[in-house]
Write a protein that binds this DNA or RNA. Sequence first.
DNA 1: ATTAGTTACGCATATCGTAACGATG
DNA 2: CATCGTTACGATATGCGTAACTAAT
Lengths: 285, 285
Amino acid sequence: MLNLLEMEQLAAFAEYGTLSKAAEKLNVSQPTITRTMQHLEEEFGVSLFERSKNHITLNETGRRAVSYAVQLLKDAEKAVEDVQAFERSLHTITVSSCAPAPLWRLLPALSDAFPDMTLSSSIKSNASVLEDVKSGRCLLAVLPDIPEEGSIPETYRSRPFMKENLAVCVPPDHMFAGYKEVSFEVLNGYNFLLGTRLGFWDDMCREKMPASRFLVQTDQFTMQELIRESSLPCFVTDVAEYDEKIYGNRIVIPISDQEAKITFHIVYDGTDKKYAPAFAQLFDS
Amino acid sequence: MLNLLEMEQLAAFAEYGTLSKAAEKLNVSQPTITRTMQHLEEEFGVSLFERSKNHITLNETGRRAVSYAVQLLKDAEKAVEDVQAFERSLHTITVSSCAPAPLWRLLPALSDAFPDMTLSSSIKSNASVLEDVKSGRCLLAVLPDIPEEGSIPETYRSRPFMKENLAVCVPPDHMFAGYKEVSFEVLNGYNFLLGTRLGFWDDMCREKMPASRFLVQTDQFTMQELIRESSLPCFVTDVAEYDEKIYGNRIVIPISDQEAKITFHIVYDGTDKKYAPAFAQLFDS
DNA sequence: ATTAGTTACGCATATCGTAACGATG
DNA sequence: CATCGTTACGATATGCGTAACTAAT
């Protein structure tokens, strides 16, 4: 039977051209490679090399054998990696969410319900979350609406999870400071501070206020500094606790549009024997 | 690195359910299998089994590892077989012919021109020969006409090789015995003796004489006996030497149709560096 | 003289089988 | 008590590196 260690030496010889180089690269003695090449010819039952007195080259058959050797090595490596990844996946609950806020409630609940499992979450656009659901890359998805008919397999369940309302947050001397509420239409054209990792809120703001510019801050401290020191409006929601240290005396004005009042939905595979019952208990209430 | 021998033991365990059975089937001691399974868990870096004190089963990860093991074993086996097949192909000239007669001249010529090569020939229908050419399953093809434009890749060359004329062969008291020549139309409706391995002649006779029945003889001696003892007409060609021992006093009457007068053509890949020049020399004259 | 490949030899260690043990049904 | 899996031990074989040799540039 073929031996992958021998395959590796064959591949190394093919790559480096001489037995000596291959031996050096693989940290074995040069006679070892000689022996292995001889043994490979026995294994394959054909001659793989052209030999002159002090030179050895792959012949046409040898080159073909090399291509198989390389492929087998890749496959074997991939097998190990995949088995390890599968093992990890058995102990991991993967969540893809369209926004950060649902995770603040969801992750503690999951951690409580599945104390032995690793939780892995990521925030991405609605489209990416949908893809993750469909491909099975996540076990739980959080989307801002009930997914459209046909956008996900029928076996998946969708359950309302929590509401979140978007608001703008302005300094007391800002022209909006006295408003009870404000619409996207009115806001459109003003520039905003925008933190990263807002998921779909990010997309929605750009869509609803195409004339506005969003000054994206990747660094959290910079963001906080700008909130204090600039008069630019920023966004908050009713789910995040309002932190005076950050927002100082800024004033929160709810956005009046329906689109700014979101009910997040949890989506999961209703036929998953391992998780569906537990998820049902968690989310069906 | 993974070891295919260990993969085989893992696959055997999966197949036979217990370590003991696997050991027995593979003709190794049972502790060997125990050790191998332990070693496999180290290699993969994950646990692959559920163990109780005197029982061991594959867990979910283990089953996945098994599927990779099986695949790797298949691939490795296929690699060896393919390399051997490739080696053979390097020393073999494969000819697909639509009829036997051209091979009688072609094979000796090839044997002469390529004394170190093995010759491998087969007789099949025109369609099969065309497929063999297109798929590269044969190096040389013999077809009854110049292949139609587009039926084979443009890089292929077609050269006339030899002619063959079909005739019927009847006893002296047969009603056709006095004819100078005879057409398919006249022959249509009569029944004939037909040897196997006639290639495209077989198809042509059935096409041109749809009302006739062909009594196919697979055994050569039965065929010869029937030629002697029956008055049924059979087919001969001008290429096969007329053997009195077989045909006795039978009389040969040429078939007058154009379709019974064939020029065989050799077809080969004109871009094949190894063979095209030699083939050109053999067939371009 | 240097580099490359093969062969010979001796040692280290890996691997296997036997045997003994423990657990289970 | 028959079956199954693990552990321990000793023999052997496998495989490696060193060294010596040949050939080529």
